[in-house]
């Protein structure tokens, strides 16, 4: 719940839509792929080092982790087909014999398959989430703020206390 509050705060804040969208996209990648692996470390580094919105990253991570349950079999089959493709065997063999390649664990069908699926989805997720943030701020945020009930809640002590918990 705290994460959602932070997300809404970020949506309503001055953070740029791209910062939110990148956070969401990186969170999606983190959520869909297995946590153990070199790619997770690179993602964590990217999220912390670059000015990406952390709240949207954490929300997307949690959200897309739920999607892995029905998607694992499909993503594993993607990895399987790539790793067993004869034309790619020389590349994987070279990769497999290399320390960096070994650290990536891309010779695991689910790791490779989920990362490929996540990377293919990422441009769409990035553009869609950026578009949605802009639209939210233009229409929904203005409309929501005009509702009397919202104005009442935001002015109450309970909301302030709740907000405090979220922080």
């Amino acid at each position: 719940m705290g994460l959602l509050v932070k997300l809404f705060k970020a949506l309503n804040s001055d953070s740029s839509p791209w910062q939110l969208a990148f956070g969401f996209t990186l969170g999606m990648i983190m959520g869909l792929t297995p946590i153990l692996g070199l790619h997770s470390l690179i993602l964590l580094f990217s999220v912390l080092f670059f000015r990406v919105n952390l709240s949207s990253f954490l929300v997307a991570w949690a959200l897309f982790s739920i999607f892995t349950l029905p998607l694992d079999a499909f993503m594993s089959s993607v990895g399987e087909s790539l790793l067993t493709a004869e034309s790619l065997t020389p590349m994987w063999t070279a990769f497999y014999s290399n320390t960096v390649g070994q650290l990536t664990q891309f010779y695991h069908t689910l790791t490779l398959g989920s990362l490929i699926v996540a990377l293919l989805l990422s441009p769409f997720i990035l553009l869609i989430s950026q578009f949605l943030v802009v639209k939210y701020r233009e229409k929904v945020m203005v409309w929501v703020n005009k509702i009397k009930l919202v104005q009442f809640i935001k002015g109450s002590n309970f909301y302030r206390l709740y907000q405090g918990l979220g922080e």
């Binding site: 399987e80 994987w92 063999t93 014999s97 010779y107 689910l110």
Partner: peptide, 15 residues
Amino acid sequence: EAVSAGRWVSFDDRS
């Protein structure tokens, strides 16, 4: 293990 949650594919690592 390979069936349930992906599998580790081995390549000729020359070793």
